[in-house]
Nucleic acid binder design. Structure first.
Lengths: 121, 121
DNA sequence: TTCTAATTCAACCATAGGGTTGAATATATC
DNA sequence: GATATATTCAACCCTATGGTTGAATTAGAA
């Protein structure tokens, strides 16, 4: 589980903040897709869709393999895992399982050391 | 666990895509804060910080109680849980636990019904 | 070579985002 | 009532974002 730097988290969450790109990720969860295939469901130009693909790529959410004239995209789950992990920090706020209390007590120290680190993004 | 509509997910992920706002959430995880207290760590005007707070509020990530002249903000974990849940869909891509196979087989149906629903954002 | 297909690039446009400053609005306090 | 405090509002600025179109690039196919 790679811990992402703040700028990377920016890019990941920003990429996820658009329904078009989330839909592309869903499609990539089924199998690999070319840029054209990813663009197909949308009523927008290919150039526009291509920009969305690039945004996903910049965030590290997909990898691209150029095979001939087609660009084949695959899901790269690492940054998704990191985002998931980031959100996991707040799980104690919506989880009321009994062992959440343990987590609460443990994170008290985490919070203090995070405060010392300065940048906990 | 409330399932968020696509526009709400947009707002939530967009709100999380900014280090300033993520830092505010971290502070709110420690305890409630006024707008002024949330703004304090940042080298920006109060008006600017106030806009960030409003972005968090619009995303449903915080609740605000106006007590006298102070606005007291508290973490509202619901949307965080939904975002976490959304990411959880992709967990099978980074999890190689054996029971992930079961999840894989289960989500095959999910994918198919999602395709019929049209908007699975 | 020529034609077609897959994708990006470049220029442009409109709107949203994040910042500023100064004035406005409430609410405590003197 | 007068003043100080906490916050927002409004107007403005600059840059980023998401879209368009038309040309450029690159690689199969005829």
């Amino acid at each position: 589980m790679v811990e992402l730097e703040a700028p990377q988290l920016d890019a990941v969450f920003h990429a996820l903040g658009d329904a078009t790109r989330r839909r592309m990720l869903r499609d990539l969860a089924k199998s690999e897709r070319t840029v054209g295939q990813l663009a197909e469901p949308f009523a927008m130009s290919l150039a526009a869709a291509s920009k969305h693909v690039k945004a996903l790529e910049n965030a590290g959410l997909i990898r691209r393999e150029v095979r001939g004239r087609a660009h084949i995209c695959r899901l790269a789950p690492g940054p998704l895992a990191s985002a998931h992990e980031w959100l996991n920090f707040y799980a104690r706020f919506w989880t009321d399982r009994l062992d959440a209390l343990e987590g609460l007590l443990l994170t008290e120290d985490t919070l203090r050391s995070d405060a010392c680190k300065g940048d906990d993004s």
